[in-house]
């Protein structure tokens, strides 16, 4: 997938799925599959999901842009219910995430492996604009590194989510998170959690394999 360079687009535009920069972006269809029940990290989760369908959302339309400093992913998917609430003990929010390997070749299905970390940028319907940045080196090792660098915004309308997840390409962090630059190539994967199907944690739909990500060069060297 090519990440188009949108010169001079303010971050607020990138974060608004209805704003100008997104109109020119053609979204690509990405098929999603449920995570295998056998790979769920604990016996209780495997028991609870043994006879239930994991991965209620089966496809998502994905696009991305950058303005030389911030990269924003756009995920659109069909969803008959807008789940933003945590009001009852049985209510779960809709959520989405983009994952990028920190080390090339890190395994996707296990969310990384020892010494092969992957970096995940989360959006969740109940805390719309505040994203979350996570590192993991294998199933059950996810660790939140900050809740400030990743920003998001979702709009649900007419049975469809339009969600943006953004982060500065280069960040100052004590942690080994992904650093990106215009003109570079890497890979990415996406995941979607359907709240109305009680999806959370490792119970989700994901893109199954890494996809290529090519960041268009910023014509003026990345400064806008």
């Amino acid at each position: 997938m090519l990440v188009n360079f949108v010169r001079g687009a303010p971050v607020e535009w990138l974060l608004d799925p209805d704003a100008e920069p997104w109109r020119k972006v053609s979204l690509e269809r990405v098929a999603l599959v449920g995570t295998p029940v056998g790979l769920q990290p604990t016996p209780a989760i495997r028991a609870a999901w043994a006879n239930k369908h994991i991965g209620a959302v089966s496809e998502v339309q994905v696009g991305a842009v950058h303005n030389g400093e911030v990269i924003a992913f756009r995920l659109d998917w069909q969803d008959g219910s807008e789940n933003r609430e945590l009001g009852d003990t049985t209510a779960f929010p809709d959520a989405a995430a983009v994952m990028i390997p920190v080390v090339a070749g890190a395994p996707l299905i296990t969310m990384g492996a020892p010494n092969q970390p992957v970096n995940t940028w989360y959006w969740r319907g109940d805390s719309d604009t505040q994203g979350r940045q996570v590192l993991s080196e294998g199933i059950g090792t996810t660790r939140t590194v900050d809740q400030t660098l990743v920003r998001g915004h979702g709009i649900w309308k007419d049975g469809r989510w339009k969600v943006v997840i953004a982060r500065p390409m280069k960040v100052t962090s004590a942690e080994k998170v992904v650093q990106l630059a215009p003109g570079e190539k890497t890979q990415f994967a996406v995941a979607v959690w359907e709240g109305s199907n009680s999806e959370r944690g490792g119970v989700k739909a994901f893109s199954g394999s890494w996809r290529d990500l090519v960041l268009a060069p910023a014509a003026d060297g990345g400064k806008v």
Partner: peptide
Amino acid sequence: GGGFKDGVAQAGKLPTRQDF
């Protein structure tokens, strides 16, 4: 539900606020 049967984890239910 929940807990273990012969050491094997069992599926359990989530109670609602109303249930509490």
